[in-house]
């Protein structure tokens, strides 16, 4: 059963939660997409280890690297704890080849169900290599089936490799099925805005829509370096409270419609992150709603 409470799951990526309203939402599918060498696997491992540090268990499905390779990479980046986590069964790594799955959606969903350690609500898949998995006709249905099963389990992080030869294949991927999509890029000039992260989608939640530079630091992993102004832009502003309250006041004496409208305005007030005065938006809403009398 999917929980209705709007709880947040920390991403484990330094500097990212502030830009995403506190992190991923519970029981959601969160996709990290990007080309080779942008740090997708680092994010997958960083998220996994952070969750374990917060008392969670992780099922890590690797379609590329073996457990041995993952261990070596983690140790190289300074995350030696991974050995203990595997021994204590807080982290379960499964290494499979996509080509070995006969019916990808059914096989993968079944494998996730049967492999989940007790009390495990987090699944990480690295990478869900799309072209290997699906025919054009079945792609949406297959992915949708996997995602539905994963949502029942809890919160999942899925890494998707962007093809190096352009965007033809990735554009066909039904990313709209995911709840959150984060796009990583690396232009390769070695400048601040070469390695960038963009939150392209974060369903049901406010999020930053700028281009954020990030770096990969040994010991820490991925660090998103948003400027103070960029962070400020995603924080709710209370300087316009008087305007919102005034608008709510105007909804009174409008019966049930007024009550519903005041509710909407309160939600807008809580989530108003812009520096611009909301007057014109409020005026428009009040005018439109008064037409429906």
């Amino acid at each position: 059963m999917v929980k209705m409470k709007n709880e947040r799951v920390p991403t484990g990526i330094y500097g990212l939660d502030d830009l995403m309203g506190g992190g991923f939402r519970e029981n959601t599918i969160n996709v990290i997409r990007g080309g080779t060498g942008v740090g997708k696997t680092t994010i997958a491992l960083q998220h996994s280890l952070n969750a374990i540090d917060h008392g969670e268990k992780i099922l890590f499905i690797s379609f590329e690297m073996s457990e041995k390779q993952i261990l070596r990479d983690c140790i190289d980046i300074g995350w030696d704890d991974i050995k203990n986590h595997i021994e204590k069964k807080n982290l379960k790594i499964i290494h499979i080849f996509g080509e070995d799955l006969t019916f990808p959606s059914l096989d993968l969903a079944e494998m996730i169900k049967t492999s989940l350690p007790p009390n495990c609500k987090r699944v990480v898949i690295d990478p869900l290599t799309y072209p290997t998995f699906y025919s054009d006709k079945e792609n949406r249905k297959s992915l949708s089936t996997i995602f539905q099963e994963l949502r029942k389990v809890g919160t999942s992080l899925i890494v998707i490799e962007e093809p190096a030869n352009g965007t033809d294949n990735i554009s066909a991927m039904p990313l709209f099925l995911a709840d959150t999509v984060i796009h990583l890029q690396n232009l390769g000039f070695g400048e601040l805005y070469d390695r960038t992260l963009r939150i392209t989608k974060h369903r049901g939640s406010k999020h930053g829509d700028s281009l954020y530079p990030y770096s990969i630091e040994t010991g820490l992993g991925v660090v998103v370096q948003a400027s103070e102004k960029q962070i400020e832009r995603v924080m709710p502003k209370n300087k316009f409270d008087a305007l919102f309250n005034d608008a709510i006041e105007k909804t009174r004496n409008k019966g049930a419609i007024g009550e519903r409208l005041s509710k909407k305005i309160r939600v807008l007030q809580k989530n108003w992150t812009r520096d611009e005065d909301p007057s014109s938006v409020l005026r428009l809403v009040l005018r439109e709603e008064s037409k429906n009398k």
């Binding site: 232009l187 805005y193 960038t196 700028s210 281009l211 960029q230 611009e276």
Partner: peptide
């Protein structure tokens, strides 16, 4: 802008 045309940051009046 970044050289691929992606805006990094902007200042504009409304």
């Amino acid at each position: 802008y970044r050289i691929d045309g992606v805006p990094i940051t902007l200042r504009a009046h409304g």
